[in-house]
C-alpha cells in the first residue's frame, strides 16, 4: 500500500492504494465516489469512463498510481457550480437518453470528450465516438439525440417523436 494523491473534480484527494489498484477501484472504494461504474472486465463497455488531464479514459484499465498527480474528472464533477445539471446532463434528461442509468456516467463523460474536440458532430460521428460505450436499455436513439442537442444542433426533425 502506498499513499496516492491526485486532483479529482478540482479537489486534491489522497488515499492509500496497492500497486495493482485500478483507477475505477480507487475512485469507488478508495474515495467512495460511486458514480463511476464498472460494467465489464475487458475494457469494452465504457461505463467507467472518466477524464484524466482532459482525455477520456476507461478507468478500469488504468492503474491508480499511474495517474498520481493527474487532474481527474468524473460524473460527480459534471454539474454546474450551482448544482444544476450541466449542459450534457440536461440534454440527456430532456431527450430521455438514459433508462437504468448504469452506463450513463460513462456515456456523459465520453460525450463531453467528443464535444470538447468536435463541437458540432454529425449523427455518424456521435455514433462512431460512442462505439466504446455499451448501453443495453435505450437502443442509443435518444443518447445520440441528446448529444446532438447538447452540441446546440436542432434535433426536432429526428424521427420517433
Amino acid at each position: 500500500m502506498a499513499k496516492l494523491t491526485m486532483t479529482v473534480n478540482g479537489k486534491t484527494v489522497s488515499a492509500e492504494a496497492e500497486g495493482r489498484t485500478l483507477l475505477s477501484s480507487f475512485l469507488r472504494e478508495g474515495l467512495g465516489m460511486t458514480g463511476t461504474h464498472v460494467g465489464c472486465d475487458t475494457s469494452q463497455c465504457g461505463a467507467c469512463v472518466v477524464h484524466v488531464d482532459g482525455q477520456a479514459v476507461k478507468s478500469c484499465t488504468v492503474l491508480a498510481h499511474d495517474v498520481a498527480g493527474a487532474d481527474v474528472r468524473t460524473i460527480e464533477g459534471m454539474a454546474n457550480p450551482d448544482g444544476s445539471l450541466g449542459k450534457i446532463q440536461q440534454a440527456f434528461q430532456d431527450h430521455h437518453g438514459l433508462q437504468c442509468g448504469f452506463c450513463t456516467p460513462g456515456m456523459v463523460m465520453s460525450a463531453a470528450a467528443l464535444l470538447a474536440e468536435n463541437p458540432k458532430p454529425t449523427e455518424a460521428e456521435v455514433r462512431h465516438h460512442l462505439e466504446g460505450n455499451i448501453c443495453r436499455c435505450t437502443g442509443y436513439h435518444n443518447i445520440v439525440k441528446a448529444v446532438l442537442a447538447a452540441s446546440g444542433q436542432d434535433v426536432s426533425k429526428i424521427a420517433a417523436e
Binding site: R28, T34, Q89, Q93, L98, G101, F102, P105
Partner: peptide
C-alpha cells in the same frame, strides 16, 4: 414528463447494490 430519477443517475448519485458497503 421528464424523468425525476434521471437527476441522481446523471450526477453519479444513483445507489446501486455495488455502491453499498
Amino acid at each position: 414528463t421528464k424523468r425525476r430519477e434521471d437527476v441522481r443517475f446523471l450526477t453519479g448519485k444513483g445507489r446501486y447494490t455495488d455502491d453499498i458497503n
